[in-house]
Design a protein around this nucleic acid. Structure first.
Lengths: 350, 350
DNA sequence: TTGTACGCGTTATCAT
DNA sequence: ATGATAACGCGTACAA
C-alpha cells in the first residue's frame, strides 16, 4: 500500500481525486457578518469567552445558531498549532484488556475537548513505527503508546516531533517521556508467592507471546526457582487469546505432564482451561487449580470464580489522559511516572 | 464540559493556552529547497507521483528522508477540503460485537490512507447528536453511524454537512445515505422458527434494552404468536451484557416460571445463563436449552457449545469502508444498501 | 513536466 | 473589549 519509495508517513493516492466542492459550510466570517462583528471577536467569543463582553458573546451565540456554524478544526489546528488530537497506539482491540483503558482515555480526553486517533499494531514494532509516522501527519498534540519497547526508528521519529508521549501498561525508570503502568515482573512474583503460599508446587504455564506476558513469566519463574522449582513446563498459544485456545492449551499441557496449578497469561485462557478441565471430569481447584491475569468481567462470576490479578484498566486511561492534557496545557504535574499497581484477587479457582 | 450556551460542536477552552512553539518541523518548502524544486513539485511527487518525472520523484524522496519531513495533514486537508478522516460512532466498545467491525473498518480504511475518529455514544441518541456535531468540526470525509435511529437534530446536522454516511448493523429501505447491515427482525423470526422446529414451546427471554435487540424480539414473538405462543416471559438486564448478568437473569427467570428454552439477546448472556443452569444442577439443553446471538468467539468452544446466530462482523466493517471510500473518491458503486445476512448456527445448547 | 499566485478557515499579535 | 493584519502549510488552477 505505502509507496515503496516513500517515507512510511507518506501514503500515495491511488486515485486522482479532483473537484473540491465550493463548500457552502458557514465560516467564522459568515458568523461575524451575521453578528456585525469581526471574525476575530467571534473566534474569541467561542474559544475564550471570558475576555469578551457577555452581551457580545450572546450575539455571537445567536449568530452561530442562526448560521449552523461548525468550527473547522483543521484550520484552527493549523493556525494555532494545536490539533486537539491525541494519537493512541495499542496492540489489539479485540482484547478486553485494552478496550477499557481506551474507553477511559477517550472519555477523559473528550471532556477536555480532545479527540482520539486510534491505531492498532498487532503487536509488531515495525507496524508501530509506520503507524506513528502516519499518525504524526495529523499533528496530534500528544501520543499514547502501549508498552515500553519500541523500535529505534520510532523513537527517533517521536523525538524529532518533540511531542508529549505517555507510555502505558508497563513500568520502567526510563520512559520516553511520561508513563502510567505497573510492574509485570512484580505481578509474576506476587502470583508465584501466592501459589507457593497456597501449597502449589507443580505449576504449568499456559502462555501467549507478548513482551509484557514474558515479563510476568520472568517474575514468576524467578520466584519459583528460589524455592527450588525451576524449568516450568509451558505451552504457548498465539494471540489473541481465546476460550478455545485455553481449552486446547490445557489439553496439550496435560499431555506433557502433571500439574497442581495452571498459570495462565490471561483470564480468557484461564476460563478456557477451567472449562477443559471440567469437561475432563477434573474439579477445579481440587484436582487442578487455575490462575489468570486481568480480572476481566467474567472472572468473578465464572464457576468456579477465577483467582486472578486485578489491574485498574480504566485508571490507566484516565491518568494517562490527565498527564497528557496537563502537559499540553502547561499545567504543572509532579509525577511523570505513575505506578498504578495491581492486586491479587483470591477467588475459587486457585 | 460543553458550554451550556453553545452549539454542541463548540467546546470552550477551560484554560488559556498561549505560546505556540515556532515549530521547527520541516515543511514542503524545506524539502523543496533541499531538492532544488518548487514546493508544488514536491507536493505532486508525494501525492501524485505518476505526473512527475521519475528522476524528480527520486530527488524528492531523498530530500524527504534527509529532512525527516512528515506532511501536515491539517494544512493539506484545509487546502484540499479532504481530511482523509472518517468519523465512526458506535454505542459501545466494551462489547465484542462492535470491536471486530471497527477493526475491519479501520484496517480497510488505513489501506486507503484514511484514519478513524472513534466515538462512543453509550446508546444515547442525544449523545450521538452532540458527538457528531463535535466530530464534524474535524471535517471528516465520511461518517459511520451505528443503527438507523437517530435524533432529528442529528439528521439535520448530517444533512447540512452534505457528507457521505454509512449506517451499519441494521437494515432499512430508507437509510440516510448508504447502509451495511442485516435484518434483526428476520434474525428473531429465524430463531423462533428454529426453536419451534426443535420442539421448544415454552421460551423465556433474557434481554437487554437496545433497539436492535427489540427488533429481534419483535420478529421472535410474532413468529411464536403465529403458533399460538404469546406473552413470552421476559427478564431485562442492563447494558453492557455480562456473564454475571446472564447468571442473574436466569435466576430471576426461573423464579418466574418454567421454560424449555431461554432466548438471550447476546451470547454473553447465554454463556452466563448456561453457567447458572449448570450450577443449579440443570443440564443444558436437556433440562433447559439456551440460545444466544452474535456467535462470539467463545460460543463454539463453550461447554455445551452455544447455538446462536452468526453475523459476519468484519464484513460489515469492510463493506462499509469500501462504500465510503469509493463514494468519497467518486468510484461508482451499484448498491448503496448491503444486506450482509446472517445464519443460525446449530450447536449443542439448543 | 514544472512553476506561480492565491486561497483554504482559523488564530497570534499588535494596535486601537 | 474589539479589530486589522499576517501567518499556519498545503493544494488548486492556471501559466509557462
Amino acid at each position: 500500500m505505502n509507496n515503496a519509495l516513500t517515507h512510511p508517513a507518506i501514503i500515495t493516492r491511488l486515485t486522482t481525486v479532483k473537484s473540491p466542492k465550493p463548500s457552502n459550510a458557514p465560516t467564522l466570517e459568515d458568523v461575524a457578518r451575521h453578528a456585525g462583528l469581526s471574525p476575530m471577536t467571534v473566534s474569541r467569543a467561542l474559544n475564550n469567552p471570558q475576555v469578551v463582553r457577555p452581551k457580545t458573546v450572546e450575539k455571537v451565540m445567536q449568530a452561530v445558531r442562526a448560521t449552523g456554524y461548525i468550527p473547522n478544526a483543521l484550520a484552527g489546528g493549523l493556525a494555532s498549532r494545536r490539533s486537539k488530537l491525541i494519537a493512541v497506539v495499542v496492540p489489539q482491540i479485540n482484547n478486553n484488556m485494552f478496550v477499557d483503558t481506551i474507553q477511559a482515555l477517550s472519555d477523559e480526553l473528550a471532556l477536555r475537548g480532545y479527540h482520539i486517533l486510534l491505531s492498532v499494531t498487532g503487536y509488531s514494532e515495525q507496524t508501530e513505527a509506520d503507524l506513528v509516522a502516519t499518525l504524526l501527519s495529523r499533528r496530534p498534540d500528544g501520543v499514547v503508546l502501549t508498552g515500553i519497547h519500541h523500535s529505534a526508528e520510532m523513537k527517533k521519529i517521536i523525538f524529532n516531533a518533540a511531542i508529549p508521549v505517555v507510555e502505558i501498561w508497563d513500568l520502567t525508570p526510563t520512559p520516553l517521556d511520561m508513563l502510567v503502568g505497573f510492574s509485570h515482573e512484580k505481578v509474576g512474583q506476587a502470583t508465584a508467592e501466592y501459589l507457593l503460599q497456597e501449597g502449589y508446587r507443580r505449576p504449568g504455564l499456559l502462555w501467549t507471546p507478548d513482551r509484557r506476558a514474558d515479563q510476568r513469566k520472568h517474575g514468576l519463574s524467578e520466584t519459583f526457582k528460589r524455592q527450588g522449582i525451576s524449568q516450568l513446563p509451558q505451552i504457548d498459544v498465539p494471540l489473541p487469546a481465546s476460550l478455545a485456545l485455553g481449552r486446547e492449551g490445557l489439553t496439550r499441557l496435560l499431555a506433557d505432564g502433571e500439574f497442581d496449578v495452571i498459570v495462565c497469561s490471561s483470564d480468557t485462557l484461564a476460563q478456557g482451561a477451567i472449562m477443559e478441565a471440567q469437561s475432563r471430569g477434573l474439579t477445579v481447584p481440587q484436582d487442578i487449580a487455575v490462575i489468570g491475569f486481568g480480572d476481566l468481567d467474567f472472572a468473578a462470576s465464572n464457576r468456579p470464580a477465577i483467582t486472578t490479578v486485578s489491574v485498574d484498566r480504566r485508571a490507566i486511561g484516565q491518568r494517562a489522559a490527565m498527564l497528557l492534557a496537563d502537559r499540553i496545557e502547561h499545567i504543572p504535574h509532579e509525577d511523570a511516572i505513575i505506578d498504578i499497581g495491581f492486586h491479587l484477587v483470591k477467588r475459587q479457582s486457585a
